[in-house]
């Protein structure tokens, strides 16, 4: 179905962005108030969140309506595609900051504190005598106390398999969509969402285990910091991805998408693959080595 709408569709007047700004303002401003111990902060945050939710639903709703009414020609479709690709690229760089912190700590700061290298030669023996500088560590002051780590073989491996499988199921859903087979499309999508939820469930179990049994917390020095920031932000992205796929499932059930035009579906799938790839990085560098 090529363009039913000649020319590039330019919406006129939109109220969603300003709502988004106000919502973001209230949410983040409220969070800052919360961190400063203000008692009215939760209310502000809730209001902000509600505004944001309404905004997201409204904004995407409008876009879906426009899309289904055939307003978007191929060029608009390409704009969306490029937009999504660059958005994912920015997300990659966001994770890169935390991976960078992990690598820096492991390659430089921890060995230095343990007395290695030109920087460590005096730092180690003079300031932190007795500290070995071996990963995993919570630092010379043993912040947070002794802790255990989570072996790669176990939940992490299981979760790796789950996520890779979900990457496959979302691809199967895509193939089904391209062949205009509704039923398999919905089933494969459902499977993907469920795999995502199972992943999150296991992640939750793992976090609970870390906190309750291993004394491994966000406060366990640099190991705990990098571990929970990376896995935590990844988990957040899995959640977002799962919600996106869920919306796609609902839309597919309503008969949205055609074999030729289903950008939203593809965007969600790309996002899911991105989340997948980040996980593999996590599995290798956080759990395995």
């Amino acid at each position: 179905m090529s363009a039913t709408h000649p020319g590039y569709y330019i919406p006129h007047d939109t109220r969603w962005p300003i709502m988004g700004s106000i919502g973001l303002f209230a949410l983040l401003g409220g969070f800052a108030m919360l961190l400063n111990g203000s008692s009215s902060a939760p209310v502000v945050m809730i209001i902000g969140t509600l505004i944001l939710v309404v905004m997201i639903i409204g904004w995407f709703g409008t876009v879906i309506k426009e899309s289904e009414s055939g307003f978007y020609n191929d060029q608009v479709d390409i704009s969306f595609r490029h937009g999504m690709i660059w958005f994912i690229f920015s997300e990659v760089l966001f994770f890169a900051a935390f991976f960078g912190a992990l690598f820096y700590a492991r390659i430089y700061s921890v060995p230095w504190l343990g007395g290695e290298g030109s920087v460590g030669a005096t730092t180690g023996p003079l300031l932190w005598p007795g500290f070995e500088g071996i990963w995993p560590t919570n630092g010379p002051a043993e912040i947070g106390g002794a802790f255990g780590t989570i072996p790669a073989v176990g939940i992490p491996l299981l979760n790796t398999i789950i996520l890779i499988t979900s990457g496959a199921t979302v691809t199967l859903a895509h193939w089904a969509l391209k062949k205009n087979q509704r039923k398999p499309l919905c089933w494969w999508l459902l499977a993907t969402v469920l795999l995502g939820l199972v992943f999150l469930y296991f992640q939750g179990v793992e976090f609970a285990h870390a906190y309750n049994d291993l004394n491994l917390t966000l406060e366990s020095g640099i190991y705990g910091s990098t571990f929970f920031m990376l896995t935590g932000f990844h988990g957040l992205h899995v959640t977002i991805g799962a919600i996106m796929l869920l919306v796609m499932l609902l839309r597919a059930m309503r008969g949205h998408f055609t074999p030729e035009r289903h950008f939203a579906f593809e965007a969600a799938a790309w996002y899911w693959h991105f989340v997948d790839v980040v996980w593999i990085g996590l599995f290798i560098f956080v759990y395995w080595f």
Binding site: L35, V110, L113
Partner: peptide, 21 residues
């Protein structure tokens, strides 16, 4: 606010790491 040690040597981090990032 959440007790991490990215930039704190005592916890194995490094203030200079912030500067790199």
């Amino acid at each position: 606010f959440f007790g991490t040690s990215f930039f704190n040597a005592a916890g194995g981090g490094d203030p200079v790491m912030f500067q790199h990032i």
